[in-house]
Design a protein around this nucleic acid. Structure first.
Lengths: 208, 208
DNA sequence: CGTATAATTGAATTACGTCAAAGTCCGTGG
DNA sequence: CCACGGACTTTGACGTAATTCAATTATACG
């Protein structure tokens, strides 16, 4: 059930809320769906560390070998292309792309450290919306000012280090002020520059 | 006449609160002193992203090239050995060590994301003390249960995403409860297991 | 000494969390 | 078609951790 390969073009399918481990096979490039990697404190508090969107390699850290068993949790159903070890054994271009993926993750983490350490609730959530929209856009999954949005408010809370209750109230504020439109699984950013201000972006900052 | 017993061993010296840029030359391995890399929000809020202690390569990200100009700020006077490009052009062992340094930074960042997102003030500060002590110990700079500690309370605040006032009050609480001894530039951890509990460590968690 | 930087303290405020209950949405099966 | 259940969102009242502002006291340093 968990992994299904088709002969013509190999495709791996995963269900929502399924854990994918390193042992399970090769790397994947996500074609459709969202996934994440998270960490827990002993008492159960959860922090989502990395978010994987369509186009992302999942998880690039898997090839570095000696690390702890990086688990990936699917947030939605996932359609992905298995990459096997092409990226390791492949040619220079493939290897370069792989290292770039690793360094993008590292840079995103650095920005997120600033966000968690120094941004307020509203700023964090605005930042998250902008990052997700921009990543979806680059992957070719944005339509005008909007894109699919597959996170529950509890998941937003686990990304931003807040509670789901506070996320709810904060989002409602942003809605009434016209900063975002968020209905269920669809996000629209009417005025990106406004939202960038809300998120305390630098004027020339480029999301990634 | 005089005999020279030591051949010149190249050493780079930096003053406290000096900014070291990529252009300035090669990589360095810190022999003595502390440094950091930080990020700012437009209104001046500061978050320290990476902390460099003796033994650390500073900054390993510099060799990955295309990145933004990673600045390093010295927190104290620094004595460092220039590494030039040996790590890139060098043999396999050298290259491996370099990649390991990069992946250690990445893993530390991931843990710090959990800390900033989900740990309370007291837990964050306890975590920081344990991480610093352990890194100093591994680098051979711990003496019994203690090590040098070169951060002001404002710098602790910029690492933990808190205010210096709150850091002060929290540390005082830890002091009166006997969880740490911290006088000026010296840190002592009388009972590491106790402090690990305070920091909400997992039972088997290994600092790095 | 004198000046700067860092640590400490107090009082008032605020942002965010907690707890608990209702309301909404959506798929599933009868 | 409706009833049901489960996951998600929304709301209110209240509690608390952390911030802010503004002094004051220590500590280092030339």
């Amino acid at each position: 059930m968990s992994v299904q390969f088709e002969t013509a073009r190999p495709v791996a399918l995963f269900k929502p809320h399924q854990i994918i481990r390193k042992e399970q096979g090769a790397l994947f490039r996500i074609q459709e769906g969202w996934a994440c990697h998270y960490a827990l404190l002993p008492d159960g508090r959860r922090q989502i560390i990395t978010l994987y969107l369509p186009g992302d390699i999942c998880d690039p850290r898997w090839v570095t070998g000696s690390d702890e068993p990086e688990e990936v949790l699917t947030l939605t159903a996932i359609k992905a292309s298995p990459l096997s070890n092409r990226l390791i054994d492949g040619d220079d271009a493939e290897r370069r792309e792989f290292w770039r993926a690793l360094s993008v993750i590292e840079r995103r983490q650095r920005r997120w450290l600033l966000t968690l350490g120094r941004r307020s609730a509203g700023e964090r959530i605005a930042y998250l919306f902008l990052e997700i929209y921009e990543r979806m856009r680059r992957a070719g999954f944005a339509y005008g000012q909007q894109c699919a949005f597959n996170l529950t408010q509890t998941e937003i809370a686990d990304l931003t280090g807040l509670t789901s209750v506070h996320v709810n109230r904060t989002i409602q504020g942003m809605r009434t002020r016209g900063q975002i439109e968020l209905d269920g699984r669809w996000l629209r950013i009417p005025d990106p520059d406004l939202l960038r201000q809300v998120a305390a972006f630098h004027a020339d900052e480029v999301v990634e």
